[in-house]
Structure formats: C-alpha cells, structure tokens
Design a protein around this nucleic acid. Structure first.
Lengths: 206, 206
DNA sequence: TAGATTGTTAATCGATTAACAATC
DNA sequence: TAGATTGTTAATCGATTAACAATC
C-alpha cells in the first residue's frame, strides 16, 4: 500500500471488479486472468492489471489472480470489510426502492435510517425501518455513526439536505436529485443522475 | 453542425447545462456567461465554451449566451425537440420509481410502456400504464416506435432483457441492473449503477 | 471608448494502451 | 523446459485548462 494518488476512475472500477469476482467465486472459479476479466467487463487487461497494481502485487505471473484472495484485497481497499452505516433522506418511490436494495447492497453497505420532511411519510415502515422526521436527523445519525448519506428528495430540497448531512458529519454523499449540490471539499459527492443519463442517450439516436 | 467526433464526456455535460438553463429561464434570467455557468455547475468556463463551440457559435462576445436561444440549441442537439418514446422492463420498486419520474423527465423523454415477466406484476397499473407481459414486448415496442429501453430487472435477467431490446430495434439502453451487459456496437448502453457508486464512495472514508 | 466575454489555438495534464522483462 | 501471465515502464491518446485575439 504505497500512496501515489489514486484517480477516481480507478476507484470506480474496483466495485465492478469486486462484483464479478464475487460471481466467479459463487460459481467455484478459483483463478482468473486480467484477460478474462477484461473480456467480461469490457475493459483493457492492461488497465485492470495497472489498477490492481496500485494497491499491491495480488497476482501470480504465469497464473493470474486467486479469486478469493483478490476479493478480500479489494474489499479491504474499499473499506467494505466492516459494515458501513448509511442514511437516506426522501422516502418517496426512489428512496423506498433503494432501501429495498439493501439486500443487493450486501458487501456491508447498510441503510440504517430513513428520514423525510413530509408528515404523511413520517412513521411509515420501510423494510424494518421507520421513517423519521428531519428534526431527528442529527441525533439519530450521530447515534448510529452514519458515514454516508443518500439524497432522494426533489431537486429543490437537495442542497438543504446536503447541508444537514454535512452538519451531521457525513463523509460522503450519493445524490439522486437532478441538481448539482455543493459541499466542503472534505466531503465526497457522487451524482447519480439518471435524468441526465437518459437525456445524453438521446444524442446517439439517429 | 460540423462533424469532429464529439466525446462522450461532452455529451454527458449537455443535459447538465440544459437543466440549469431551464432553471434560469424559469427565473426570468435572459443572459448567462460561461463563467456564471461554470461557477454554479462546478466546471471550468473554458470547458463549457469549448463544449458548446463544437456545435456552433451560440454566444455573443462581450455579452454571453442568450438563455432561451441556448436552451433551444441544446435541445436540438440532444434531439429532445420531439417526444422520445421509452420502454421499461422490470416493474419492481425501482421501475415504479422511474415511471413516476416521468414528470421529471419532461424534456420529451417519455416512458410509454412497462413490461415484466412475473404474473403478479402483469396487469398492475403504474401511473396510467398497465404492466404488460414480456411476450408482448416486441409487438408493443414496434407499435409505439420505442427507441430507448430501460432495464430495472435483477442482474441475472438483465442480459436477456437487453437481448430482447436489441431484437426489438432499440437504439440505446439505460441499464440499472448491477451487471455489465453486452450489446452490438450499434446500440448505446449507459450503466446507471448505484451499488457501484455507493461502494466506490466507501473508498474515501477515513 | 473601455470592459467583458466569446471562440479557438496551444499547453498541460492525466488516463489508457502497448510492450516486454521477470517469473510462475 | 515451454507457455502463460503478471507488474511496470514507455508510448499514445484524449480531455482539460490557459491564454489571447476578435468583437460585442
């Protein structure tokens, strides 16, 4: 584990590797080469080797990578070796959908609290979680040691929610609202913006 | 409209510009500079000017860009000047959430058909749409001239659904299933992969 | 006119890919 | 040993940013 700055592009590929490796393991495959990985994931094998080499020498020359060993290494790199508590604000359709993905988001990311501003949402049950009022956010997040926040409120409210998350000491935010939110540089934000995704696809129509 | 190949990075920023310009227009702002845009969208002004200049000379030196005019230009570039019919497969939580975003996805992207394989989903009503069986997909999509497909089924079924979309003549696919799908080069695929998004955020935790 | 801002070229920066010695 | 595949350096490619003449 040296420390040349790792680019975001590299970090974003690690979960993709991890997911496929998990599948391989489930199927009883014990070894895989960068070539096979690249073929399946539509990536250049040299890129995969380089990505992994940033973090250590995980492969064996002439053989490839041990699937189980590589899974463990990547999980450690991504800090998925312990449960990461996540909070979500916005108990609308999308918010509920994400909560139900908790199963999918195994690998230790777990939504442990859901908040909403609307009185008719508060108290609703989602998947074992009770929707809490926004007033409870700070205290509850501290209590649960939440480190990542998910925003699934309308665009107009997203920045405000982000501010509350930051206030509550969140280290990273995943924003689904179709608006760019601004936070201090110490907080990482990813924008999951499917309206923009969809619109950019339209460009490629004949 | 010349034709140097436009990079995907550029195309992905256009909807971001469009969205903010729409907001400006709603607020009665008639002119905006690349500097103001950049400030708000967290982008370099030179990059914004360059992006736009690929498609024409939309600004006025010394003045900036006319908001209404630029909106129209970008909508044309993105082909959002006519309604684009979209189909969705997978009427689970996420699928339903996306259908309800139809309002959000104004700007002429419209989900016009929803399909699911599960008997207890078929016939359900979502937002004025009735969930159709997979057997109806090809015929219905032809009828409605659907050009873009959205996949919100579990990972295991995603590739199969993609194949059916391709078969049905779709030109682009937005895939929400946490798996890389493969399609002919003539079809554009975007992966909206929030599990990967979320996991990559974990990397930045202290 | 003076100030502002575009469009565009050149410079920089960073990411991807190719190539190959090391070695299992 | 011969064949395969890594880790890594060098070459390429592409995207971002700076700079500035043109001009509103």
């Amino acid at each position: 584990m040296k420390s040349p700055k790792i680019s975001e592009a590299v970090v974003r590929r690690l979960p993709i590797y991890l997911r496929y490796l998990n599948e391989l393991e489930k199927n009883g495959v014990t070894t895989v080469s960068s070539q096979e990985l690249g073929q399946r994931l539509d990536l250049n094998p040299a890129q995969i080797r380089k990505d992994l080499a940033y973090f250590g020498e995980f492969g064996k020359k002439g053989i490839g990578y041990d699937v189980g060993y590589l899974i463990e290494k990547i999980r450690n790199i991504l800090k998925l070796n312990r449960i990461i508590p996540v909070a979500l604000v916005g108990a609308g359709n999308l918010g509920r959908a994400l909560c139900n993905y908790n199963a999918y988001l195994r690998d230790n990311m777990k939504i442990v609290a859901v908040f909403d501003a609307s009185p008719d949402k508060i108290g609703q049950q989602i998947n074992n979680l009770t929707v809490q009022p926004m007033e409870a956010l700070a205290a509850r997040m501290a209590e649960l040691k939440v480190r990542i926040g998910i925003i699934t409120v309308p665009a107009a409210e997203a920045q405000q929610v982000a501010n509350q998350f930051v206030e509550a000491g969140v280290e990273a935010i995943l924003n689904f609202a179709p608006v760019i939110i601004r936070v201090p540089a110490s907080v990482r934000v990813h924008h999951a913006d499917f309206t923009a995704d969809l619109q950019s696809l339209a460009y490629y129509l004949d």
